[in-house]
Write a protein that binds this DNA or RNA. Structure first.
Length: 529
RNA sequence: CGCGGGGUAGAGCAGCUCGGUAGCUCGUCAGGCCCAUAACCUGAAGGUCAGUUGGUUCAAAUCCACUCCCCGCAACCA
C-alpha cells in the first residue's frame, strides 16, 4: 500500500491581490507533509503556483495602469517572498502564463475537441454592459445587480465551448466507488454526488469571448480558455506532460508507484473532484490518488474578506514571531480538514503553552542540569535504571507509532499532538525522578545519569518528529544537545539511547515566552493595517 | 424543505466512524518543587454533552427521527 514516491500539490492561487494567512495555511500544511515524507527518505515532489489569467486580473491590471503580465509579475513576486519567508520547500512554481503551460493547455483543448468531448455552444448568463462581464445567478442576487458596479444586468448569451460531462459521469461514479480514499474527508464525496451529480451535472463552460486575458484557442482565437481547463492542467504541465521532457511526468504522475495528492480548499472541491478526473479520463491519463479538502481559516467575525477588513497578513506575524511559531500555529491550532478561526489570543496562547512552556522550557532545564551535574556531557545510555525510565521509553515509542500513522493519513494536527506527548511526559518525568535530589546523593549517580540521558533522547525524538513543522528550531534543539550532523537522521529515533557521550551547548531560549496582552495588541494592530 | 459544517464545564476545542467511568488547553482555587522561560508537577471546583422532544437499546454525547440556533458554500476570493 505504501508508495515509494509522492507528488503533492497546493492549488495555484489567484494573483489579483496579496496572499493572506489562509493561503499560507494551505501551503504550510502541504509543506509539512512534503518535508515529512522526505525526512523519512521518500522522494516527494511538491508543486505550488499561480493561476494568472482571467477577467479580474485584466481589470485590476487596467486599474493599476499596467499590462496584465506586468501586474501579475508584481503580485507573484509577493508569492515568492511569502513562500521563502515560510520556508516552503516546493520543487517548482508553475505560472499559467508560462510558455510550458500555455502550449499544453492548447494541445489538450485540441485533443478534446477532436475527440468530441468539447463542443461549441451558447453560454447564457447575466451580463453587465458597463463592466462587459458575465455573472452567475448568485452573484447578481435577487435584484439582478452587477456585483462590481451595482448597475442592473441583463440576460445575454455568447458563443462558448463546453466540456461534455455526460460522457464521464458513470465512469466517475465508478471511480469513486473503486477508490473510497480518493476524496477526503469522506463527507465531501457525498456532497459532490448529492449536490452536483445527482441533480444532473451540467456541461462545463470552458471558453469566453468577452475578455482576452487568457490562453487563446488555436482553432478559434477569438475565444480564450476559461478558468478550470487552464488552471487544473497546471498539475501536469508543470511536470512536463506533452513536452520534450516528460521525465518528471512519467515518474511522478503516470507511475503507479507514485502517490499523487492534491490539497485544496472546500470551495474548489467540485472542480478537483468532478471535472479534473473527467479531463484526465478524456486524455487517458492516470487519476490522482488522493484529494484532501482542508477547512477554511476564518476570523472571529466570519470569513476573511477585504470588505470586512479582517484579513491577516502572514508577513508581519513571521517577522515578529518567527517562521517556526507561525508554522506551528497553523498546523496545530486548527484540525486539518475542519474549519477554524484565527484569533490573536489563541495565537499567543498556543505558542506560549506548547512551544515556550513545554518544549522550550524542557530543553532549557535539561541542558542546564546536564551542564550542572555532568559538566555538559550527556551521559551514555545504560538501559532502564530508574523506576520511570521504561515508562518514558514506552511513551516515546508509542508517540512515534501514532505520529507516523496519523501523518501518513494527512492527519497533521493529530500527529503533532502525538509528538507533544513525549514533551509533556518528559516534563512529568523530571518531577517524578527529581534529579536535584539524586544529585545530592553520591549513591544515586547512576540514576541521575540515566535521567539526563533519557531526557536528552526524548527531546531528540520530539525534535525530530516536529522537524517538518519547526524548520529552524529543530536544528537549534539538536545544536544545543550537541548532536552531530550524522546522527540527525530520522531512523535514529527508533533507537532510544542513541544520544549520549556528547557535550551540550547551551544556547538562547528557543521560544521566549510572549506577553499575552502586549502581543495581542500588536497582532490586532497588524490586522487593522 | 438547496448543500455542507457545527451547537460538549467561564473561554477555546477533543470525544461521536467501532454505543458502556465526559477528556484536553487556558482561566479559577489549593498544594508541591526549585532543574527551568513567574516556567514545571499534583489535586480541586465547575459540564448530564442545543432541545424538561420522540425512538432503538440492559445502556446514547455517541445510532435514528423531529425541532431550534450559529457558520460556511451556492458554479473565480485557500
Amino acid at each position: 500500500m505504501t508508495k515509494k514516491r509522492f507528488y503533492i500539490t497546493t492549488p495555484i492561487y489567484y494573483p489579483s491581490a496579496k496572499l493572506h494567512i489562509g493561503h499560507a495555511y494551505c501551503t504550510t500544511l502541504t509543506d509539512i507533509f512534503a518535508r515529512y515524507k522526505r525526512l523519512r527518505g521518500f522522494e516527494c515532489y511538491f508543486l505550488t503556483g499561480a493561476d494568472e489569467h482571467g477577467q479580474k486580473i485584466e481589470k485590476n491590471a487596467a486599474l493599476a495602469g499596467k499590462s496584465p503580465q506586468e501586474f501579475v509579475d508584481g503580485i507573484v513576486e509577493g508569492f515568492y517572498k511569502l513562500w521563502e519567508a515560510l520556508h516552503i520547500s516546493n520543487n517548482d512554481f508553475i505560472r499559467t502564463t508560462q510558455e510550458r503551460h500555455i502550449k499544453v493547455v492548447q494541445d489538450i483543448f485540441s485533443a478534446m475537441l477532436e475527440k468530441g468531448d468539447i463542443y461549441l455552444g451558447k453560454y447564457k448568463g447575466w451580463y453587465c454592459k458597463d463592466c462587459e462581464a458575465f455573472w452567475t445567478d448568485t452573484q447578481v442576487g435577487e435584484h439582478h445587480l452587477c456585483p462590481d458596479c451595482g448597475r442592473e444586468v441583463q440576460t445575454a448569451e455568447e458563443e462558448a465551448y463546453f466540456f461534455r460531462t455526460s460522457n464521464y459521469i458513470d465512469k466517475l461514479l465508478k471511480f469513486y466507488d473503486d477508490n473510497p480514499k480518493f476524496l477526503l474527508p469522506e463527507s465531501r464525496k457525498n456532497e459532490m454526488i448529492n449536490t452536483f451529480i445527482k441533480p444532473g451535472l451540467e456541461d462545463l463552460c470552458i471558453s469566453r469571448t468577452s475578455f482576452s486575458w487568457g490562453i487563446p484557442i488555436r482553432e478559434n482565437p477569438k475565444h480564450v480558455i476559461y478558468v478550470w481547463l487552464d488552471a487544473l492542467t497546471n498539475y501536469i504541465s508543470a511536470l512536463g506532460y506533452d513536452s520534450d521532457h516528460p521525465e518528471l511526468f512519467n515518474k511522478f504522475w503516470q507511475d503507479s508507484e507514485c502517490e499523487t495528492i492534491h490539497i485544496l480548499g472546500a470551495d474548489i472541491t467540485r472542480f478537483h473532484a468532478i471535472y479534473w478526473p473527467m479531463f484526465l479520463m478524456s486524455l487517458n491519463l492516470r487519476l490522482p490518488d488522493r484529494e484532501f479538502v482542508h477547512g477554511l481559516l476564518m476570523m472571529k467575525d466570519g470569513k476573511m474578506s477585504k470588505s470586512k477588513g479582517n484579513v491577516v497578513d502572514p508577513f508581519p506575524l513571521i517577522e515578529r514571531y518567527g517562521v517556526d511559531a507561525v508554522r506551528y500555529y497553523l498546523a496545530r491550532e486548527v484540525t486539518f480538514g475542519q474549519d477554524g478561526a484565527f484569533t490573536p489570543e489563541q495565537f499567543v496562547e498556543r505558542i506560549n503553552v506548547d512551544l515556550a512552556n513545554s518544549l522550550g522550557n524542557l530543553l532549557n532545564r535539561t541542558v542546564s542540569m546536564i551542564d550542572k551535574y555532568f559538566e555538559g556531557m550527556i551521559p551514555a545510555y545504560q538501559g532502564q535504571v530508574t523506576l520511570f525510565d521504561q515508562g518514558l521509553e514506552e511513551v516515546a515509542k508509542h508517540s512515534i507509532e501514532q505520529y507516523e500513522a496519523l501523518l501518513d493519513d494527512l492527519k497533521i494536527t493529530e500527529a503533532i499532538i502525538a509528538a507533544n506527548e513525549i514533551v509533556s511526559s518528559a516534563n512529568k518525568y523530571i518531577d517524578q525522578t527529581t534529579p536535584w535530589a539524586l544529585a545530592k546523593d553520591p549513591a544515586k549517580q547512576k540514576d541521575l545519569a540515566s535521567v539526563m540521558n533519557h531526557l536528552a533522547n526524548a527531546i531528540f525524538i520530539a525534535g525530530m518528529l516536529l522537524k517538518p513543522v519547526l524548520v529552524t528550531a529543530s536544528d537549534k534543539i539538536f545544536d544545543q544537545l550537541g548532536i552531530s550532523e550524522d546522527l540527525r537522521k530520522y531512523e535514529n529515533i527508533y533507537q532510544f539511547g542513541i544520544i549520549g557521550n556528547v557535550k551540550v551547548q547551551k544556547g538562547e531560549q528557543l521560544f521566549p515566552r510572549l506577553d499575552q496582552s502586549v502581543e495581542v495588541e500588536a497582532i490586532q494592530a497588524m490586522m487593522k493595517k
